[in-house]
Each structure stands twice: as structure tokens, then as C-alpha cells.
């Protein structure tokens, strides 16, 4: 089984190129025969790196074409660090993606309210942007107590996140620093 999976990924090159594909390569007869019986038949296959600890294990994600949901996630045998192995959390990755406990839509809690209220993305982004601007405009510090120019904003703080991708982290810190934030912290500090 491992061997056929390896051939599967290598033959299509999909993992390296990041191109989604469906079905099996026409030159892989034995694999085709086998795939007829497995639930990942016809699935889109992508590689990922586990989202938990810092080892950086590779995994293969099978996604159903019909509804775009995960069928299975398992260790990537061609990943040179984990060679297909995963720990208990890594082995449960598909339950993370498909958890019914996941947040489905933006929620809002008004001051003093006892409940969440579902809101639209547009309302949430517009309202948060307005809060950011109002707080920034009212609290921006051009100079510190000694009169030295500092151009900073201490009234807004941010924590997060090692759960973001590098590109998202970079974009996030650029945004926060453009606003003048200095209270920028995340998991690495704790």
C-alpha cells in the first residue's frame, strides 16, 4: 500500500506542483484496480504539513470532489522527516477539519449581551475597521512623556499567531505596525 501511494504522488507530480488533480494516472494499472475499492477514489489529493508541533511532518489530504470536504488525512511517506508516520494528534487531523464544533459564521456580542448574534462578514469587517480608526484617532501618541517623537498607538494590542502561515504573519505585522501598534505579541513569548 505504501509503495503504491508513493508511486501515485510521484507519477502525477501533483504534490510538488500543487496542482489539484482527480483520478489516477493511466500508466498505473495496479493502482487503478485497487483504487476502485477505496473511498479515496477520484479524490483530490494535496500535501500539507501538520498544524500542531514544530517537527513539520508531511501529510496527504484526500478531498471529495463533490462537496469539497476531507475524506482522509494520513502521513506522507515521501516526507523525509516523518516518512509517513504521525502522532495521535496528526492521525486525527481530519477530525479537526471536519469538526462540527467549528465556527460557521462571524459572531457578535454587544456590550452587556448574554448571547452571541450571527452577523455578516461585511458588517463585521466594516464595524471592526471603524472601531480601529476611532480608537487610533483618539489615542495616537505622536510624542512620549519626554516629548520625543514616537508615533505609536498603545491603546490597541494584538496577540497572535504562530497558527498563521509565514505570509499571513508578515502581512499581519505590517498592518499592525502601520497603525502604530507596539503591543504586538504571540505564542513565542509564552
Amino acid at each position: 500500500m505504501d509503495l503504491t501511494r508513493r508511486q501515485f504522488v510521484q507519477a502525477t507530480g501533483a504534490a510538488a506542483a500543487g496542482i489539484a488533480f482527480s483520478g489516477l494516472g493511466a500508466n498505473l494499472k495496479p493502482v487503478e484496480a485497487r483504487a476502485g475499492q477505496i473511498k479515496t477514489q477520484g479524490a483530490k489529493q494535496t500535501t500539507t504539513i501538520c498544524c500542531y508541533c514544530g517537527v513539520g511532518c508531511g501529510a496527504i489530504v484526500h478531498t471529495r470532489q463533490q462537496d469539497g470536504r476531507v475524506i482522509n488525512i494520513e502521513g506522507d511517506p515521501d516526507h523525509v522527516i516523518n516518512r509517513g508516520a504521525l502522532c495521535s494528534k496528526g492521525a486525527a487531523l481530519s477530525q479537526l477539519a471536519e469538526s462540527p464544533n467549528r465556527l460557521a459564521r462571524p459572531l457578535y456580542r454587544a456590550p452587556g449581551a448574554k448571547e452571541w448574534k450571527p452577523v455578516s462578514w461585511q458588517w463585521a469587517i466594516d464595524t471592526i475597521a471603524r472601531r480601529v480608526k476611532t480608537t487610533r484617532d483618539a489615542n495616537f501618541l505622536a510624542a512620549n512623556a519626554q516629548g520625543k517623537p514616537v508615533n505609536r498607538l498603545e491603546a490597541i494590542a494584538s496577540v497572535g499567531s504562530a497558527a498563521l502561515d509565514n505570509e499571513e504573519c508578515w502581512l499581519y505585522q505590517a498592518f499592525l505596525r502601520s497603525l502604530g501598534l507596539v503591543y504586538i505579541e504571540h505564542q513565542a513569548r509564552i
Binding site: A15, G18, A20, K44, T46, T47, T48, I49, V61, H62, T63, G68, R69, V70, A97, E98, R102, L103, A104, R105, P106, W121, I125, D126, I128, A129, V132, K133, S161, A163, L164, D165, E167, E168, L171, Y172, F175, S178, L179
Partner: peptide, 25 residues
């Protein structure tokens, strides 16, 4: 890493949220 499944329900990639918020501000 690559995108496999589509974002579940109305969830969005963090990058989309940061970009949209920055755009609005």
C-alpha cells in the same frame, strides 16, 4: 502547503481577513 478542501461554511483564510480589514481601514 496546499489548499485541499474548500473553506468550511463561512470560514475564511486568515490572510483574506487581514487583507480585507486593512483594505477597509
Amino acid at each position: 502547503r496546499y489548499a485541499g478542501p474548500k473553506p468550511r461554511a463561512e470560514s475564511r483564510p486568515d490572510g483574506d481577513i487581514i487583507l480585507a480589514l486593512g483594505r477597509k481601514v
